[in-house]
Computed example of a mutant assay.
Amino acid sequence: MSRHSIGAALLFALGAVPASALAEPHPDAERIVAIGGAVTEFVYAFGAGDRLVARDTTSTFPPEAMALPDVGYMRQLSPEGVLSMRPDLILAEEGAGPPEAVALLKSAGIPYEEIPSGASPGGVLAKADAVAEVLGVADGALRAALEADLTRAAKADRAIATPQRVLFVLSAQDDRLLAAGAGTGAEAIITLAGATNAVSGFQGYKPLTDEAVIAAAPDAILMMDRGDGATDPEAQKAQVLAMPAVTATPAGKAGRVIRMNGLYLLGFGPRTGKAALDLHRALYGGA
């Protein structure tokens, strides 16, 4: 199966998953703690932001979410911190943790609904369905808009004859690039944008040797802009481009480092289709 056929298949692979198989409805919940950036975005997108009383550290969009109390990073939750918000529903994305904290929250007598994670287009649609089901709201308009965005991204993908090779760099420390391999959200968004992951042969994230960077021969390097003010984006870009191995690649020679907001790029929430199209434009140009 070609890469473009795979991209088209991904778009609809999970879109038909019934929401009722994913979550139980809680239409009367009025004190919701949302855990996971995409989950929080979907709650606001469905017009239910006024039902939230807290969010986790990854929930940075929309801006209104930042005014909510922060219960901590979604993979390092404190049960006490979550329960101190007196929630009548905990709405968490799959992967929240640690496991013992989640077990305590599930045993606290408060509904705990887990929203499936998913980095494919169909997975994003299933996520939307699940959040809507839990909130007890109709998701028709939002789902249609999201599906339209994803379809536009898939069409843009199919229009590319020679996909660019993109290297996603999570961090650059000690003159080593920590890059995204197979099975990562980074690879998924790169594929959805009509490009291909410049590295293969490993799962997850791995530090690359200089030889591996040169062999990857990326046309562009993609990085997250965390927007936390802790890192100077231009300084980090200059640091990456100054690495000897990077200077030997097409991306290094062209000075092509693309930076995008981390949650926008890898959140796989309601803005996923737009993020893929923005990355596509950054790689190939066009309106």
Rank of each mutant, 00 (worst) to 15 (best):
P62L: 12
P62N: 11
A65P: 00
L68T: 05
P69Y: 15
P69T: 08
D70F: 14
V71S: 06
G72H: 12
G72E: 15
Y73E: 13
R75T: 06
L77V: 05
P79A: 12
P79N: 11
E80Q: 11
E80I: 09
G81C: 10
V82Q: 12
V82F: 15
L83S: 06
S84H: 11
S84L: 15
R86W: 08
P87W: 01
D88W: 01
L89V: 00
L91T: 01
A92I: 01
E93A: 06
A96R: 06
A96H: 07
G97A: 03
P99C: 10
V102C: 07
V102M: 15
A103C: 09
A103V: 13
K106P: 01
S107A: 08
A108R: 14
P111Q: 10
E114Q: 15
E114G: 01
P116G: 02
P116K: 01
A119Q: 08
P121G: 05
G122E: 13
V124P: 00
V124G: 00
A126W: 10
A126P: 07
A126S: 09
K127G: 02
K127V: 03
A128V: 13
D129C: 05
A130N: 01
A130M: 05
A132G: 08
E133S: 01
V134N: 00
L135M: 14
L135P: 04
G136S: 05
V137K: 09
V137N: 04
G140M: 14
G140W: 14
R143T: 06
R143P: 00
R143V: 04
R143G: 02
R143M: 09
A145P: 06
A145Y: 15
L146F: 10
E147L: 12
A148M: 10
D149L: 07
D149P: 02
D149Y: 13
L150D: 00
L150S: 01
A153C: 10
K155Q: 12
K155L: 13
K155A: 06
K155I: 07
R158L: 13
Q164N: 05
V166A: 04
L167A: 03
L167Y: 13
L170F: 12
A172P: 08
A172D: 12
Q173H: 06
D174V: 14
D174C: 10
D175L: 10
R176Y: 12
L177I: 12
L178C: 03
L178G: 02
L178A: 07
A180R: 02
A180H: 05
A180S: 07
A182D: 15
G183S: 07
G183Y: 15
G185S: 04
A186C: 04
E187P: 04
I189A: 05
I190S: 01
I190N: 01
T191A: 14
N197T: 09
A198G: 08
A198T: 04
A198D: 07
A198E: 03
V199F: 14
S200P: 01
G201S: 07
